[in-house]
Design a protein around this nucleic acid. Sequence first.
DNA 1: GAGCACTGC
Length: 877
Amino acid sequence: MGKSSDSSSDSEDDRKARDEFAARLQKKDKERVRNIASTRSEKRAYEEAAKRLKLELENKNRIIPRLRVESRRKYLEKRKEDKVQELEADILDDEFLFNYEELSERERKDLEHKKNLLNLAKEHEKARELEKVQRYHMPRDVKEKTEQYEEVDEREKKPNYEQRKWEEEQMSSAVFRFGAKEKEKQQQEYDLIMESQIEFIQALSLPGNKEKTEPEISEAQRKRMTIEETQKSLPIYPFKEDLINAVKEYQILIIEGETGSGKTTQIPQYLHQAGFTDGGKKIGCTQPRRVAAMSVAARVAEEMSIKLGNEVGYSIRFEDCTSERTVIKYMTDGTLHREFLSEPDLNSYNVMIIDEAHERTLHTDILFGLVKDICRYRVDLKLLISSATLDAQKFSQFFDDAPIFRIPGRRFPVDIYYTKAPEADYIDACVVSILQIHATQPLGDILVFLTGQEEIETCQEILQDRVRRLGSRIKELVILPVYSNLPSDMQAKIFHPTPPNARKVVLATNIAETSLTIDNIIYVIDPGFCKQNNFNSRTGMESLVVVPISKASANQRAGRAGRVAAGKCFRLYTVWAYKNELEDNTVPEIQRMNLGNAVLMLKALGINDLVHFDFLDPPPHETLVLALEQLYALGALNHHGELTKLGRRMAEFPLDPMMGKMLLASEKYKCSEEIVSIAAMLSVNSAIFYRPKDKLVHADTARRNFFVVGGDHLVLLNIYKQWSDTDYSTQWCYENFLQYRSLKRARDVREQLVGLMQRVEMDLVSNPTEHVNIRKAITAGYFYHIARLSKGGHYKTVKHNQTVMIHPNSALFEDLPRWVVYHELVFTTKEYMRQITEIESKWLLEVAPHYYKSRELEDSTNVKMPKVMGKTKAELG
DNA sequence: GAGCACTGC
């Protein structure tokens, strides 16, 4: 960068260079021939859709067996080990179930003890029935479907209630404890599923508009229906004319539609038929997720009997499946966000539909402000915002009191049950509830919402153990985990049909809340928690913490039980907690994320006054200030707060500004090939290593084998290089406990970045052995993220003088170099730096002379520090 | 000596 451009003639020059650069980009865009949908991209679309997977498409049954074969081949090696364990488990089961006489003395005693306990439990239950105390409130059909709280517990009004309650508690605490510390007792109590029940009460039901008795149209029947018949059966169909008229009359319309109304597939078709695409202008429809954009586009193309990518297409990152003929275009919200850079007035669109607006992703939130602004001077542009019921009013207010158009949805009613008392240990409560449902309720699959991989694995272990002990006394229970980091072929298992007379339990993270839909779920268990990422703009630190979910989220989860038939949702918290402790809505992303890239993008769109930008919910002031401050330090903004040419180039990359700067700086250090690999790997960072709980040691050894001198960035580069040397082998990934899906993604990101580098007129140069230059280029982007070693082996950040530690997974964990550059700060159990690389302090003066003065970098610790510290192992030899 | 929810460009 050299000297900062402070004089006005300098910034004048830069402004000119920036505008010329922008003009060149625009010219390139115009010249670019629109991608005609190629068979290759279509194929990739289906592959992706199939992998993640998406039952909406009928080819589900065709793809799953293929996936199964693939997965079997891939996992053959790994499964050898598993098989042995499975066999052991089988033997154990057999002994337990059939060979009582061969059991050892201790085992026989144990078994007798268990039988005794079971008898006691049964008698106990009988006694309670005599007492007419219903401990387990069995669900009954509820006639009224209003959202009214029902006072269920009449017992409280009876005399001696307190006394009775005390007795009850004494009785139950004698037989079961959640999370009991005493191992022995736990062992004895293991088998008491009939005893250790959780008491649920029904307080409210999610109304459906399908009768419980109404037979669901079977898949086969649906296939026999013509497309036209299917379209006419959708709840939106009777509103077709009204909707078209409303769109003609009003510029902005809020569509309040529940799931299953058909709005996403039908509205664009209606508007197309009504002439809104005349003159070759498009109808755009955004979705928060890639798979949704692809599968909806495919469905609409099918309904219109045309080839996907012609009149109907979709555009998502890495894949543009549209052509000049495309008039209905589905896309992700982020794609539209990017499109603003090359077409700030959305000139090629007549209609823009923002679907699933209630999800409030970062991109939709920014889009709201942008499209609202455009509507003021493009009076011919029609805008439709589609949202769930609760938020429609809020959206209407934001869009100058736009009228709300209501479309009913279609789903089955879901009865909701709450626990009578709070549950201390919700994992254990989940296990008990699952077994309770399994033992007492009609067949139908169960979906359980947990917060993360570790919790899912723990729950799975406990459940499997219990089921094994129960043996043939209960029906078969198929236990399946699903979370986003689980390899795709293992994810696909949740879509396999449940064997006859068995029940499937899916232990899922939030992934099952919106991203994937599992058929035949009748029961939902909701402990009421999720993991949420928060960004603290004061410290620049992210934290991933378990928090209670919102009411909206709880209802979304409950709704998962009512897709194919009337369902039941068991909430592991009390009615009181639901009413008083849960927020109405989840805090929108825009208020809890780092906005560096978003701010850069808005600046590039010419929006200079961000503080007064029309946000639906404004982000914290400090977050905006931090983002602006950083952009200024990076040289993306000049001291007037205007975008520089460097900033304009950075905005072209879908990356955090620091990473964008690193990429652009790599040109100077002649290592752009290496840096682009590192950038690609960093952007999929978290999910590269696969660490299953039962093979932690193997996985960690494999990880250590990639360590190189210098730091984690070079480790990532090393992995990427080795992988590309194997010609991007999947087998190699499995052997090294790496997630193929993540590396493949890194490859896609890299390809895209390389394309963009050429677009911003960068040269691609490689210098694989010059590690110092690579580390300097990293520092040139991340000089904001520097920490120095202080006494006691911990680090202080240079910017905030904050105490931080090297993450134990880092290659430098045992080295403690004096100066490090880190990729990010994360608070988990402590304040950790993740992805760090050793640097020399004098580099800072070279890469950011405007930011660092040599005085700041004087190494006062030099003298006092013991010699061993502050040196890498490599230096010590 | 920790432990990564979920999306998206």
